[in-house]
Design a protein around this nucleic acid. Structure first.
Length: 630
RNA sequence: GGCUCCGUAGCUUAAUGGAUAGAGCAUCUGACUACGGAUCAGAAGGUUAGAGGUUCGAGUCCUCUCGGAGUCACCA
């Protein structure tokens, strides 16, 4: 069971106030109405700000058992709780909602003993391993906007799973072989004149990507020339659909032409064959270009702040899966057709028949994934594997997981496709051929420079050294970009408009960072002036703005659990925003350092410290840094 | 066509079956001689695509309709 419970504070093995209330309500129903209600099923939420109270119990489900009106049931249970649970200070009932106000002592202890600890929100180690696969680029071109979303999701999910106690192994599959990289190789060989990243000053992945584009361009030129030839006219004359225009025909014909008539097509196929045969010169060329690409990728990953524990290379795994095919045949999960190809029939599960091994005995895409899954389990013994891959591959993963289940793989029930919507431009999907791809490096530079421009306008960093300033611009720019991408539900398709610069105001990363900067300012003064915080314990008359923050802090552990259970960091992003918003309001409405009495000052400082720590922790799980100044 | 997903203010979006659908941007109006104004407050903006149903209660679950996307390769 993967239940969602927002309100599951700190250590789940301990009794939390939520558990206490659930138990007490269950007893109340038993005592008052002689009916049994399982404690775990009782809904306890934090009370919305517009009502008085801290926690709210939904009494509707108990109404039928009691055979009384909702407000009567609420009042009776409320009275029972106030009597038996020391933490319950007061209660009120509105319709079917029982709002409970807890004692100041409860909140004091929560703030000072739980929320202030560095481990607040993190769970004990489970001793279970989870593998998260993300990024998984092709090596023929640099990373782009889509990879950015993928990396942020994958990396953040890894952190969140770690926080709830899993041992996480971050991996990527590097698609380093195949026709795509051969195109770059061929173009570089023919037209490159020995260009290297050193000679041209280009980043390696960009250099290789440029040759991929060049290959496509040269092919296009060749095709345009060919279209004037006798053979082309003959092909058009013999076309299937007589009403087809010449333009439409040649557009549709391009693949066939490339495979059968193009000179470059023949050359690139030849290169792929030589690669597969292990031709030393081809392998050397391949290694050379890929090494440039990896250096480029490493730089981009470092800038994004993501990393991996292990890399799987497709050149090592593309032949895998043959043994799993044999296994499947033995188990009668697969069957062989007359031509020798091997299939799996999933029509009873609502899918199609899928080929898992070609007639010539070579692997297809899914065969690699079957073999790789088994290899990973052997490598790490992970009970769960999460694949961060765009939603265009939903069907592929549904089939993959179904096949692994039928094969009885021990990890088959721990597989999850973290499917996310493609990032599109206002003009539609990004297309390499049309040059509309938003490059990851460019994008990162862009957001940093926006942050730089904005900061210079504010002029708040005057006493800061230049390198420190640059680091702050980087933190703000990346904070804005990361928050922008991660605050929306992963499965939602997202439109990115490069014309509209990334916002720094409102519901953004910098908004949250700014609340941290304010808190940091307070903490520095506490340090400098040696403020005594012990009077905090004597503060009991909480203001609504303070209560809002306390309730917000209380929700943090449950939010992490929800984010982990749903593999969805956006919950955490929205949580951080809401907490920062509450803090800004608190800051505006109440004096912290200049509070009227030492008790209020000490308490508000403690509260601010805890908020700052939770924000740093929560944003950290999203891969967003909190600058000291901005 | 089959299967899957999506449709919430002008735009971007939130909401474990629970209270008056919550924010941000954009628009308009206000707020520091007080801890940092990348802030705060207010106004305006919604038939949650539409129609039925289940439920004490539906943006959320079920059915149908409309609109959009993805996928249905011996490509990856």
């Amino acid at each position: 069971m993967r239940g969602k419970r927002y309100l599951c504070a700190l250590k789940c093995t301990d009794m939390t106030i939520i558990n206490t209330l659930q138990q007490a309500v269950s007893q109340a129903v038993e005592t008052l109405y002689g009916a049994a209600v399982e404690a775990e099923t009782i809904q306890v939420n934090t009370t919305p700000a517009e009502f008085t109270g801290d926690f709210t119990i939904v009494v509707f489900p108990m109404v039928k058992l009691a055979r009384k009106a909702p407000d009567v049931v609420g009042a009776e249970i409320g009275a029972y709780l106030q009597e038996r649970v020391p933490e319950v200070h007061q209660y009120n009932v509105i319709k079917g909602f029982l709002n409970l106000e807890l004692t100041a002592d409860f909140w004091q202890r929560f703030l000072l003993e739980e929320a202030s600890t560095p481990e607040f929100g993190r769970q004990a180690r489970k001793g279970e391993k989870v593998m998260v696969e993300y990024s998984s680029p092709n090596t023929n071109k640099p990373l782009h906007l889509g990879h950015v979303r993928n990396c942020l999701l994958g990396w953040s999910c890894s952190q969140i799973l770690d926080a709830v106690g899993y041992d996480v192994i971050k991996v990527q599959v590097v698609n380093d072989r195949g026709v795509a990289i051969c195109k770059s190789m061929l173009a570089w060989q023919k037209f490159g004149n020995g260009e290297t990243p050193e000679s041209s000053g280009k980043k390696g992945d960009h250099l290789v990507g440029d040759y991929y584009v060049l290959f496509e361009q040269k092919t296009k030129d060749e095709y345009a020339d060919w279209q004037k030839s006798e053979a082309a006219l003959a092909a058009y004359a013999g076309r299937q659909q007589q009403d087809q225009s010449e333009e439409a025909f040649f557009k549709a014909y391009k693949n066939k032409w490339f495979n059968e008539q193009s000179g470059l097509g023949a050359e690139v196929r030849d290169m792929l064959l030589r690669w597969e045969a292990g031709d030393p010169d081809t392998i050397a060329l391949w290694k050379q270009l890929n090494s440039w690409v990896y250096a480029g990728f490493d730089a981009t990953y470092a800038k994004m702040g993501v990393d991996f524990d292990k890399l799987y290379f497709e050149s090592d795994t593309y032949l895998l899966g043959k043994d799993i095919v044999e296994d499947g045949l033995k188990k009668k999960v697969f069957y062989r057709k007359e031509d020798g190809s091997v299939w799996v029939d999933l029509s009873d599960a609502g899918y199609d028949e899928k080929v898992v091994l070609r007639a010539d005995g070579t692997s297809v895409y899914i065969t690699q994934d079957l073999g790789t899954a088994r290899m990973r389990y052997k490598d790490f013994g992970c009970e769960q594997m999460i694949y961060v891959v765009a939603d265009e591959q939903n069907y592929h993963f549904a089939v993959l997981f179904e096949v692994l289940r039928r094969l009885g793989e021990p990890y088959a029930n721990g597989l999850h496709h973290l499917s996310y919507g493609l990032v599109e431009l206002p003009t539609g999907r990004m297309k390499t051929r049309e040059g509309t791809v938003v490059d990851a490096d460019d994008l990162i530079e862009e957001v940093i420079s926006i942050a730089r421009g904005q900061a210079e306008e504010y002029g708040a960093l005057e006493g800061v050294t230049a390198p420190e300033r640059e680091d702050i611009f980087r933190q703000i720019g990346l904070g804005a970009l990361k928050f922008f991408m991660i605050k929306v539900n992963p499965k939602r398709k997202m439109i990115f408009n490069p014309e509209e610069s990334v916002d720094l105001q409102g519901q953004t990363g910098p908004y949250i960072q700014y609340s941290g900067v304010r808190i940091n300012g307070l903490m520095q003064r506490v340090e400098q002036e040696g403020v005594d915080l012990t009077p905090a314990k004597a503060y009991t008359d909480f203001q609504p703005q303070e209560k809002e923050l306390l309730k917000g802090l209380y929700e943090y552990p449950g939010i992490i659990q929800t984010a982990a259970a749903e593999y969805d960091p956006s919950h955490l992003a929205n949580y951080c925003y809401n907490l920062a918003k509450s803090f800004h309001r608190f800051w505006h409405d109440l004096s912290v350092f200049n509070a009227a009495d030492p008790e209020a000052r000490a308490f508000r400082l403690e509260l601010s410290r805890a908020v700052g720590q939770v924000l740093r922790s929560g944003m950290g799980l999203l891969g967003i840094e909190m600058p000291q100044k901005m």
